[in-house]
Design a protein around this nucleic acid. Structure first.
Lengths: 196, 196
DNA sequence: AAAGTTACCGAACACGCGTTCGAACCGTCA
DNA sequence: TGACGGTTCGAACGCGTGTTCGGTAACTTT
């Protein structure tokens, strides 16, 4: 963020704030009121300068703040490095965690039992599931099985005898679903979330 | 959602869609165009009906869709029940997972190493951290230690000799930070997220 | 048969919007 | 000294906005 005059910077900051909350670009007259400018032409001039310097872009008829200047939402990911504090500097900014990156169909299931404990999934964890009717060998899936239509999280494996759902816990046996008319894949597990 | 005529329902659905995306209330004339209404008075009439029936509310001069009719964002949590499919019915809707519920200061750190493996935290998992300078006995924390300011995830314990950071892995020794001038708590771990 | 509801129309209104023009003032740089 | 850029002004424009009025028509309820 360079090459801006003090006034232009102030106006840009105001706009950025207003675009995030309540979510729309302020009108020329609103901006004018905020900075005691009696003429909309003055505002227009400032906005033109901001546009020319790349701090605003025009989508058709509508001015907007470019994504690169938008405030970040979600949770920042700071790389875990061996030396130096990753917490002080923004230099370690390493992306962002967003649930919105997931498809809108995605859902979460709270885990009961310990059948996937060796995969690091414990009781009361949430598994994040992307709906799918098929799976690849070795995928972790959520499936509906049995007469009571119960739902389980398991590893998906194909075998000559049919589909096998393997737990990640030696204390449990794999489930073979060769002849289960109720068997249905609910989706593929794409993430695990644990709240502490 | 009752007491609406077919036309009113259609218009309301259109409005709800437009409010979510691109994020603003459509103009009377836009609504008119969508439904081939040549007079804005017709639109005004429908909107007045929707307002009277409580499907729209007025914030000052601006019409809005009440929160109760807004579409849910984030990831739906479906309860994991033993019988019955929780995936078919919305009856099992059990809340929502949102990263936005976390404070704006919250950040995430990607885990390196296996020192917390017995707590179900593996390499490349993300721990979600709420910044804090203090912790309670037994909390899982992110701390900065040692001359190289390295960052670790550990359990926090107080002892007569000072603070002890315990790993969840028998292969590692606890770290005692009685006389470490570099020791600093970065925050408390409030969640774990694993992307598969 | 009268009253009410739902649905639509055209027209007009006052207002806020973004845009543009001409004009001014004050610095700095050449 | 003159040119230039930043900053401000007032005025006007054409357009889209929400609101309102008066009127028509089909259908249901009373």
């Amino acid at each position: 963020m360079k090459d801006l005059t003090a006034k232009q910077r102030a106006i840009f900051e105001y706009i950025r704030e207003r675009v995030e909350n309540p979510g729309r670009f302020p009108s020329y007259r609103e901006i004018g009121r905020r900075f005691q400018l009696r003429s909309v032409a003055t505002v227009a001039q400032h906005l033109k300068a901001l546009e020319e310097k790349g701090f605003l872009i025009r989508d058709g008829r509508q001015l907007n703040v470019p994504d690169s200047y938008r405030e970040k939402k979600g949770v920042a990911i700071l790389g875990m490095v061996q030396a130096g504090s990753p917490l002080a500097a923004e230099a370690n900014y390493d992306g962002e965690l967003r649930l919105e990156d997931l498809g809108s169909e995605t859902f979460a299931v709270k885990v009961q039992g310990d059948s996937m404990i060796e995969a690091g999934i414990f009781e009361d964890d949430f598994v994040i599931v992307e709906p799918r009717e098929t799976a690849n060998e070795g995928d972790m899936v959520v499936a509906v099985v049995g007469e009571d239509q119960s739902v389980t999280v398991k590893y998906f494996h194909k075998s000559p005898k049919g589909v096998e759902l393997r737990p990640a816990n030696e204390a449990y046996e794999p489930i073979r679903v060769a002849n289960d008319p109720n068997f249905r894949l609910a989706g593929r597990v794409v993430g695990v979330l644990r709240k502490l």
